[in-house]
Amino acid sequence: MKTGAKIVTLTLIAAMTAGCTAADRLSQVGKEPPLTAIQDPRTTPGYRPVQMPMPTPEPEHYNANSLWRSGNRAFFQDQRAKRVGDIVTVVVTIEDEAEFDNSSQHSRSDTSNVGAGGALGTAIDTLALPASTTSSALASVDSSANFNGSGSIDRKEELKTTVAAVVTQVLPNGNLVIEGRQEVRVNYEVRELIVAGVARPQDIQSNNTIDSKKIAEARIGYGGRGQISAVQQPRYGSQVLDIVLPF
């Protein structure tokens, strides 16, 4: 498919998508953004159980005439999350700061000359070239290129909040797969916080909380949807042009 046809196809697809989105937005004029219904995370599209390398299972040892509960970390029953469906509070703490400054410079020049001498040069001078031109300099090619690039990043991010997550899976080694979603609607804007990952039962505190820094394969998302978020996004036409235009 030629480039022009590709651009037309992408433009039509973007126009159809924009039309569907515009219709949805028009149906919500004057209304608050709807909240997502509570559902089992395992039933959402794209959900896949987590599979990770597991150690060799070790048999449990029981002591006769003992009041100690097998598998507990305290004398009394443990109230911390440990089974599918249990709830654990995740303390999200993100303090990220990065600063980079890079620059690059490239230059190149090239000169080439093509000519002919001897009997061949004499024949060319006599038969093919004008009187003011000689075959010793038939062609001369000069080229040069210069490139200067620079970039800098100065970023600082900070997020502190808590969210309750549900244990969706218990791995063979006892680690817990957790996933939590929180939505808060203020006026016409919905803020979403998503937390997912793998947690060790040993990292869960006695008050049934765990720090987000101790969650392996952590996936933390914080964003929003509504009137303010829609205004902050470029129009669909601008986004399509930024993708398809080569210059």
Rank of each mutant, 00 (worst) to 15 (best):
G4F: 04
L35Y: 06
T126C: 01
V240S: 05
W68K: 11
S238E: 07
V50W: 06
C20Q: 11
R225V: 00
I178P: 09
A230S: 03
E183S: 01
Q105T: 15
N187T: 12
D203L: 00
N208Y: 06
G197A: 09
P49M: 08
H61E: 09
P41H: 08
T133A: 08
A119N: 13
E189G: 02
A128K: 10
S136V: 02
D211H: 07
R73H: 04
S135F: 01
A196K: 11
S238F: 11
F100V: 15
P33Y: 00
I13N: 01
Q202T: 08
Y222Q: 08
S212P: 02
L193C: 12
G197D: 07
V240F: 11
Q169I: 01
V244E: 11
L176D: 13
Q28C: 05
M52N: 02
A137S: 07
I7F: 10
T44N: 13
S112L: 09
T168C: 05
A23Q: 09
L26R: 04
E158F: 15
P34I: 01
S152N: 08
Q77E: 03
K160W: 12
R108C: 03
V91N: 10
R25L: 08
D40A: 12
M16P: 00
E32H: 01
E157W: 02
I124R: 02
S143D: 03
V198T: 07
M16L: 14
D125Q: 10
R181Q: 09
K213S: 15
D142I: 11
A137L: 07
Q169D: 04
V195W: 13
Y47S: 13
I204N: 02
L241F: 14
I124M: 12
T43G: 12
M54S: 05
T21R: 06
N146E: 10
R191F: 14
V184S: 08
K31A: 10
D110N: 13
H61F: 07
N208K: 04
V92E: 07
T126R: 03
F76I: 00
T36N: 05
A137C: 07
T43D: 09
R25F: 12
G117D: 11
G224S: 13
A131S: 08
D154W: 00
N208Q: 05
E183D: 12
A139F: 14
